[in-house]
Design a protein around this nucleic acid. Sequence first.
DNA 1: CCGAACCTGGACATGTAATATCCGGATTAT
DNA 2: ATAATCCGGATATTACATGTCCAGGTTCGG
Lengths: 158, 158
Amino acid sequence: MRLGEGVEWTLHCCLTLGWLETDEPVSTAKLAATFDLPPAYLNKRLQTLVRAGVLSSTPGARGGFRLARPPEKITLMEIVAATEGAEYAFRCTEIRQKGAGAERPAHEFQRQCVITTAMRKAELAWRRELASQTLADMLAAAPVAAAERTRDWFDRVG
Amino acid sequence: MRLGEGVEWTLHCCLTLGWLETDEPVSTAKLAATFDLPPAYLNKRLQTLVRAGVLSSTPGARGGFRLARPPEKITLMEIVAATEGAEYAFRCTEIRQKGAGAERPAHEFQRQCVITTAMRKAELAWRRELASQTLADMLAAAPVAAAERTRDWFDRVG
DNA sequence: CCGAACCTGGACATGTAATATCCGGATTAT
DNA sequence: ATAATCCGGATATTACATGTCCAGGTTCGG
């Protein structure tokens, strides 16, 4: 099981947007340069965050992205779900109904199978943990130097 | 993010092995027939469980697989980790050190980045949940009818 | 002792999802 | 008007999971 790199990208981008105190939108090109990422593809990921309501975008010259809400109101779960999709990692394909199970009456499969239940339970724990952490928590947890360096860099590259 | 189907396969196979009270090993062919799965590939996944110490295998005619330990001593985490790999789903590639970060002194990156910390925390919650559930728990949670049907079927196919 | 049933592991083929690029269209600042 | 920028469709590339095949060992039963 592996999360796409896109999650790391979008999380870092949100963190960066939180550090910049300006109200100016930040372009894909600048964010891509900040982390040395492919601009066109990063833009696609940022677009999904816009559709998810995490970021807002302004078109046109001097346009770009900014947080759609204050960092206290953005959870990591939202960012991760927007980037990776909201589906469960464990997908039950009901193999219990195949093969030997095929000859059993349908009503025996009404209840969710114990495996799915167990896996769901674990995934909910994961989601709960991500939902409990906001972008503001991360901004607070990061060393102040990191935020300053970032602001400096954005000042310099304009 | 998505778990491979192999996880569903191996979990169901372990559950089945737990239901059968016999001490006889069960062949890949029979397990594959039970769930209508490709035998050769299922065999590969079972092999990884053997390497992980979850199952034990007997070669030769009338050989096959059985649980390496009593179900109380096998956690879902072990089965999942054996099948999917023990690595974290979130892989930090340290993009904070690329681009803008490249000009910063190395000592600023000693501490794990806040994003990695947060993601690890969520994953540990997931793992803890899986580790807290044993195969015995699942055997107990499943309807008795399911266990009986399985035993009947294995009796019939020999 | 032989053949059939089985596991083991390597090599290889296939399929699918993530990553990445490119382009045309729309919008906005200068 | 021009340049900068977002948007989204089409397409290419890559990585990984899935799946097949085969040659080499074991073990059982006759």
